[in-house]
Amino acid sequence: MTTTVAETRRRRGRVVARNTALGWAFLLPNFAGFTLLTLVPVGLLFYYAFTEWNVFGGATWTGLENFQQLVRDNSFWTALGNTVYYAAFHIPLTLAVSLGLALLLNRKLRGVAFFRTVAFFPYITSIVAIAQIWNMLLSPGFGPVNEVLRFIGVANPPGWTTSADWSMPAVIVVSTWRDMGYYMLLFLAGLQTIPKQLHEAAMVDGAGAWDRFRAVTLPGLRPTTFFVTVLLTINSFKVFDIILVMTDGGPGQSTLVLSQYIFQKGFEENQFGYASAVSIVLFALCFVVTIIQFMVNRRATR
């Protein structure tokens, strides 16, 4: 029977070759543009991180010097700490709120189209207007939020964006508010993949709403949840614009995050090599978290 083994192997080899060719054929249109315009410059970053570079001329190889400096750089550690602080709260909060919204708006309610659009509004509203309104609502002296807090008996309501201790929570709340519609949209798309029949079958079995959510909705949403979690993680670690318009990293360094620090070091202080090194750290951080999520997801699907 040796011939059949060889034949199977040969056939399998052919299948692999055929699949490889096919796979690449599907990837190519996107991959060509992606490699040329994104992968190459990103790859260069890994070189620049080990150099001293002023962006105009050639870079001077300095080995690990940038990374050694990073270890001693207190501002870097502050920025890293703030970024992790932000991500640790923003990720679960946004996940919960946007999933809740998607579930709420995945029904045949009257006017659901209107409410879906409203939920998406913060994402399309000008970020300047968002910063302005929220800063005003949270204004320590005259803001309505603190008026309410005082009314219900809080003697010393927080100073929010003007206080070193409360600026980060304020930013987290506002950015969750802004992002919820975006991720809701992704969840809404994901919810459509769950066959209605599964819900009906579960109902016939007498399962309650919570049981159906756990037994039908969550497993059916797994690919979407994975996608949203990874995207949310990456976007949280890269957070920049909302911080820039709301607090500009202040007061002091209380909301300084890594993306902002990279921009500062690069474009303001002309240390592009050092900025690249910080980017590598940010990249590594995102990447490790993503890979863990990838592994967990893969184990769960199998």
């Binding site: 100073g159 003007t162 070193a164 500009d248 202040g250 007061p251 002091g252 209380s254 202080e269």
Partner: peptide
């Protein structure tokens, strides 16, 4: 440039009362 960035942090920290 880097010193001015540090002093800007000082500015917001002091005048916000932090």
């Amino acid at each position: 440039a880097p010193l001015q960035n540090i002093l800007n942090d000082l500015h917001t920290a002091v005048l916000s009362g932090s």
